[in-house]
Structure formats: C-alpha cells, structure tokens
C-alpha cells in the first residue's frame, strides 16, 4: 500500500471525529512516513509495519469516544461509545443490538419515572398551595360536595316519590343517618339516576335511553385533600425511586461498557503485538 492510499483510507475511516483531531492524527502518520522514507525504506514497507489503517482508525475512534464520554457524559456520547465499540468487531456488533434495546428500555423507564415524579409534585404542590393560599381553587370538589351537602340537609325533609300512568316515576331518596342519597327519574323512553353511596363521597351517574346507556362512576372523584396528598406523595416516591434506580443502572451500565471497551482495545493492542 502506498502512503497516499494509507492516508486516504485513514482519513476516510476517521470522518466522524472532529476535523482538528483528524488532521493531527493524519499529520502524525505523514511524519512517520517521511521519517521512514528518509531512513531508506519503501512506502509499502512502512505501511505494512503500521498495519491496516481502517483498523487503526476504528481503535482511535473508540478511544476518542470513550475519552469524550469521560469528559462529557451526555446521552449522545454514550451512543457514540456503543457505536465505536460495535465497530471494533463482528461479535461486538452483534452484542450492540440487544444492548441498544436495553438502553432504549432504560431510557423509557427513566422517562416514565420522570413523568410520575412530576405528576406527584404537581398534585402535591397544587393541593398544598390550595391549602395554604386558597389558590388554585379546586372547583370540582367544592361544587360536587356543596351539591351533596345541600341535598342531604336541605328541605323538604321528606323523600319524594312521583308515579306516572305509564311507568314514569321520580324518586328522591335521602337517608341522613347513612349518608346515602339518590335521585331516580324514569320515563317510558329513558332513565336518569344520580346516586351517592353511603360509605363515601363517591357519586354515580347513570343515563339511559333507547339508544344506550352511560355510566359514570366516581362522579366526585374526590380530590379529597388527604387522598390527594397521599397520592401525590406515593407518586413522588414511586417516580423518585424509579428514577434513582434508573440512575444506578445507567451508572453500572456505562462503567461496564467502558471497561468492556477498554478490554477490547487492550485485546487489539495485544493482538497487534502478537503479529510481530
């Protein structure tokens, strides 16, 4: 191989590292050729001594990416490291595929955890802010609760039962002692019922006509303050814990990856020394 060919292949294989660094490497090898030629050797002899330029480039790239990752740990850099190690050999290439899947899963898990954490912070923060400053107002809760409490305690005290001739009926039932209350309206072509269970603040709405039926459970889905706080804290713990776990896994992963990369580079070094 001529010097020109050697340098061309080296340059081509190094196309993905910054211009300045590539030029430095190329200059180094040009210098080596000059010195070798001055010592009376042929270009082919020097090129043979230096080895396959593409393999050299792969090794330099892997080293470059690992160093860059160590100085700046970004996600893009991590993928560059994986790519560079994959470029070192076929087996590494095969290993890279499940590894990239794993990295992708890890990313998804981290994103999901972040979402849950943010959700928890928002719920908790909103409720706390509402409790402390009365802002933001939690309309739904207030309205539904107000409605029920008015309904429960308001006059007239007696339950209402109205019957029509064709099966129509209206029932308004309140049981102050158990807290159960319901409104039932039925006509020949449909029904509507609004019901509050005795045990808690959850209401149910059922609407039915000839076409179909709509059921809404948990009408007051109860941003009951205490429940909300608990939910917020649980979400924060879950999200935070998940994120921390992802962080630990990621740390373990990139440490392993770098060790593996160095090990592979070490093997290359050794293999080259054995060639002599």
């Amino acid at each position: 191989m001529s010097e020109q060919e050697f340098i061309r292949q080296l340059q081509e294989a190094l196309s993905r590292i910054p211009e300045r660094e590539r030029q430095e490497i190329v200059d180094d090898y040009c210098e080596y050729f000059r010195d070798g030629l001055a010592a009376g050797r042929s270009e082919a002899d020097i090129a043979a001594g230096l080895g396959d330029p593409r393999q050299l480039a792969r090794e330099l790239m892997a080293r470059h990416h690992i160093e860059r990752w160590e100085s700046r740990k970004s996600f893009g850099n991590l993928f560059a490291v994986v790519g560079a190690i994959a470029g070192l050999g076929f087996l590494n290439f095969m290993l890279a595929i499940p590894f990239l899947c794993y990295l992708w899963l890890l990313t998804m898990a981290a994103l999901a955890s972040t979402g849950i954490l943010i959700g928890g912070i928002v719920v908790f923060g909103t409720l706390t802010c509402n409790a402390l400053f009365g802002w933001p107002a939690l309309h739904e809760e207030r309205d539904v609760r107000a409605f029920w409490s008015t309904f429960e305690s308001g006059a007239p005290a007696a339950n209402i039962h109205i019957r029509g001739h064709h099966g129509e009926k209206v029932d308004v039932v309140r049981d102050a002692s158990s807290g159960r209350a319901s409104i039932d309206i039925q006509s020949s072509d449909g029904a509507l019922s609004l019901e509050r269970k005795a045990s808690d603040a959850i209401g149910q709405l059922h609407i039915q006509d000839e076409e179909g039926r709509v059921d809404i459970d948990a009408l007051d889905w109860g941003i009951s303050r205490k429940g909300g706080w608990i939910a917020g804290v649980v979400m924060m713990l879950l999200g935070g814990g998940g994120l921390f776990l992802c962080y630990l896994l990621a740390r373990l992963t990139w440490r392993g990856l770098l060790s593996y990369g160095r090990y592979q580079l070490g093997l290359l070094d050794k293999a080259r020394r054995m060639d002599d």
Binding site: D28, G49, G51, L56, E59, R63, R272, R273, D275
Partner: peptide, 14 residues
C-alpha cells in the same frame, strides 16, 4: 525488544 510500529501512535495517544 520486539515492537510493532502500528502500536506506537495509539500508545502515544494513550
């Protein structure tokens, strides 16, 4: 000692 020429630059960079 026996040394490959190709070893030198990666080594020096390290």
């Amino acid at each position: 000692m026996e040394i490959s020429e190709g070893t030198m630059y990666p080594l020096m960079r390290r």
